[in-house]
Design a protein around this nucleic acid. Structure first.
Lengths: 120, 120
DNA sequence: CAGTATCCCACGGGATACTG
DNA sequence: CAGTATCCCGTGGGATACTG
């Protein structure tokens, strides 16, 4: 079955991004939930409801909103299957996957921070 | 969030941090300005007003608030010099400096993201 | 199942004034 | 200079109800 691709084009204008690369990254993933969405999608494709469960206590509205923004930013791919009941699968684009080093760095730091606290 | 302060000493309770290390990191640096504060302090010690200028359009109240939290979380060191006019210097603790890989990863990703956009 | 559509609110953050 | 002290506001996000 051929999935329907909706959106998928980056709508971001490079001229409107901050000069500093760090700030650029912040504008794209600094929302409360986006990093967690990426963390979970790094493990592979997920359906909407799967994401909701794996992320934690995120509401439908907010998850939808975040996913749409990330789709517009070219980080996430959304594939709709014409089935009943409907199935929608989310995955990372290449650009989205390229965030792995960032997530990994956050993972490592979080681990060592907790280890340091536990040592006291 | 959910840092606990024991006996007036800055102290985060490891048991109240999220299980996932990525979430732990988010808890500590996901505020709008903290990453930028760290970015600038990675270049060395800065006075309050220097930080204000280098960061951008942050208000006094918010900069103070963020710095206090980061001090409590053990990321930032605050040194007050008994002079007139007063001089207060901020620098990263070892723990704060250990965030460099995270900031670097964000820097690199932001650069390549903009390069990708510019290529289109 | 995967969303919209509403309503609502806490709070991070901005603006301004004042001070040791 | 490096802050407090107030007042104020936009909005990200939560809760609930409804739908193709």
């Amino acid at each position: 079955m051929i999935p329907t691709y909706l959106g998928g084009l980056a709508m971001v204008n490079v001229n409107m991004l901050p000069a500093c690369p760090v700030e650029t990254t912040l504008t794209l993933i600094s929302d409360k939930w986006k990093v967690l969405i990426i963390r979970d999608l790094l493990d592979g494709t997920r359906r909407f409801s799967e994401l909701r469960r794996s992320i934690g206590h995120i509401s439908q509205k907010v998850l939808t909103s975040n996913l749409r923004q990330m789709e517009n930013d070219g980080l996430v791919r959304r594939e709709v299957y014409a089935e009943v009941p409907p199935r929608v699968e989310y995955s990372l684009t290449e650009t989205g996957q390229s965030l792995k080093p960032v997530i990994d760095a956050m993972w490592n730091w979080g681990e060592s921070y907790k280890a340091k606290l536990a040592a006291d």
